[in-house]
Structures are given as structure tokens and as C-alpha cells.
Amino acid sequence: MIDKIVPTAAAALADVRDGATVMIGGFGTAGQPNELIDALIDTGARELVIVNNNAGNGDTGLAKLLSLKRVRKIICSFPRQADSHHFDALYRSGAIELELVPQGNLAERIRAAGAGIGGFFTPTGYGTALAEGKETREINGRMYVLESPIHADFALIKAERGDRWGNLTYRMTARNFGPVMAMAAKTTVATVHEVVELGSLDPEAVVTPGVFVQRVVPVERVATSAGGFKRAA
């Protein structure tokens, strides 16, 4: 029998080791797997490589992981935010490595890893500082840059509903990086707000097939009057 349900975030991340590459879903606070980030902090793992769209906000979650100096390198598209002071300080003191990637290239490099693609030519970034040193090629009269896949040991994502096979649905823009990160990691851990019986998710509506998911962790929903999430605490 297949049963990917894991009762706690701590149990789901018990095997994260020093030096691991960890993808973390979310765009801003939508789709951010808060419980898993807290559990990652609790593992004590160091020298992590983090893949996320941003570089933490405020003093909690990813920002806290950064402030504890547990991250060697971050791969992201938009580290600069009004409240990204922990990243800013580490970056300015040279205490963290930044690989800045245009957001669409970030998503596609992650997808490529999950799809077994060894690299791809993209027009994004051609002629800019972010393509310096990369192979370029003219294809049908347009210039392209060769980009490589980004693989991970773990992907931590937030979904909405899931079953014991790991099939997932998402809620509105909280989907963002979840489906592609789920494909790209050796171990994908997804939080869900509801674990449902196998067969009760509409097969037409499953966004991430369970084959891409190894662990499913049920977590409480923090509902607003509109039924969604409050701004992350």
C-alpha cells in the first residue's frame, strides 16, 4: 500500500542533511509552506542551498533561516524587498552567495530538471549582465542563451488538498512554483489543508500527480473571512 501521509512537518524533514539543496515554494506569502520552513529551521541543517523566488521577508520563515546563517547560497529572482533586511545584511557583508535568475528562467530551469531536460535556449536575459559567460546561439534569426536545469534534494511546497498517493490540488495564486518544484526534487514534501480519501479528488482537477510527491503533511488553515490566508505572520 502506498501511504505518503506524514503526520508532522518535523517527521517529513528528519532526513535533511547539511549542504542540501532545498526548493521552497511561494511567491510573496501565497503558497509559502510556513510549517515546513519552520521545521527546516528545527532540523539544524547548515550550508543549505535555497531556491525560492524571494529571499525572505521580515524576521520569520526563510528570513529567520537566513538570519541563523544556515544558508550558503540562494538562487532567486527577487531578493530585494522592503522588509528583506536579513538577506540585505548577509549579502552586503559577503556572507551569502546569490545566484540571481530572471523569474521565468528560474521556473523553466526548475521545470527542466523535473522533466529530464539537460538545458534549454531562452531569449530571456540575452545581452544582459545575467547572461554573461553563458553560451548563446542564433535560432531562426533570434538570439538565445543556454540555461541549465536546477535540481534539488528537497522541495517544500504548499498545496490545498491531497491524498495518500500524493495527488495535489492548489488554491488560486498559491499554486505558483509548487507544481514545477514538485517535479524537480528527489524528495517533495507538500503541506495540505485537507487529506482526502483516495479517489475523491476529481482526476480532471489534480494539478500535481502523486508521482511527483513523496510526503504529504496535513496542516491547519488560518482562514480569513474570504476563506483564504491571512498575510503571513
Binding site: 527577487f78 552586503r92 530572471p102 544582459t128
Partner: peptide
């Protein structure tokens, strides 16, 4: 020199 670089989706949008 002290600016934090951030690109987001700008490069993809610009050429897309």
C-alpha cells in the same frame, strides 16, 4: 555597488 540586485520577471516580460 551597494544596491541589492533584483530582476523578478522584468527580463522575461521585456522580450516576451
Amino acid at each position: 555597488p551597494d544596491a541589492i540586485p533584483a530582476v523578478g520577471g522584468a527580463m522575461d516580460l521585456a522580450i516576451g
